[in-house]
Design a protein around this nucleic acid. Structure first.
Length: 207
DNA sequence: TGCCAGGCCCTCTTTAGGGCCTT
């Protein structure tokens, strides 16, 4: 059964290339529109969290100091995901931290990432904002907890992904939109979405 | 020493610039 692993990181900043590290990770496994499993943990990477980030995420230096080592958490997360294709909101951000944290352990990070932000730009041109919270409000998605904590944001992103897949079924007749179709759609211009779906369905019946 | 993201997308574009989105 095709699964997608929806991930969200909280971090000390925007760029692992500039030394920023993950402070919390959450992964929600989605199968046929249902959440079937979850993984969440704070992690201690041994770096200080700024006052701005403490206020933004609610994750304090004391919380991270009491958390398990980043290496242990990321190894567990890697095993949890396995080869499952992944998704995230603004996936370029989470993909960079996924790759950077796993690279420190010598672990591969080859999973393809679908992006609910790119897909939402394609499918919901009427949206005033493509922030995760704004899209959740637009679609009346259920609240999942404090925004900017990893599990709450991963749950909302998973609900947004389910909404996207539902709309692909209803609007474009894609019976079971799989990860490959999501990747194809986010890589094409908005006006080319219907044609891309037609081509994908013709090549992969049941996609 | 001081500074520092990266990728997508739109437009007053393509020999570029700026806003959005993630923390």
């Amino acid at each position: 059964m095709p699964r997608i692993a929806v991930i969200d990181f909280e971090t000390t900043g925007l760029s692992p290339a500039l030394g920023d590290r993950a402070t919390e990770i959450a992964i929600v496994l989605v199968e046929e529109g249902r959440v079937v499993d979850r993984y969440q943990s704070l992690m201690n990477a041994g770096v200080r969290i700024s006052a701005f980030i403490e206020a933004y995420t609610g994750i304090s230096n004391a919380m991270v100091a009491a958390a398990p080592p980043a290496a242990q958490v990321m190894a567990e997360a890697s095993r949890f995901v396995g080869r499952t294709p992944m998704a995230a909101h603004n996936a370029s951000f989470d993909r960079r931290f996924w790759a950077a944290e796993l690279e420190r352990l010598g672990l591969p990070a080859a999973q393809p990432f679908a992006c609910t932000l790119l897909l939402s730009r394609r499918l919901y041109p009427q949206a005033a904002s493509y922030k995760l919270g704004a899209l959740a409000a637009l679609h009346a998605l259920p609240a999942a907890g404090r925004a900017h904590r990893a599990l709450a944001d991963a749950e909302v992103a998973a609900a947004l992904l389910e909404r996207i897949q539902s709309d692909l079924r209803q609007r474009f007749g894609a019976p079971q939109p799989r990860h490959e179709l999501l990747m194809a759609l986010q890589a094409c211009p908005r006006h080319a979405v219907p044609r891309a779906i037609e081509r994908h369905l013709a090549a992969q019946p049941g996609a």
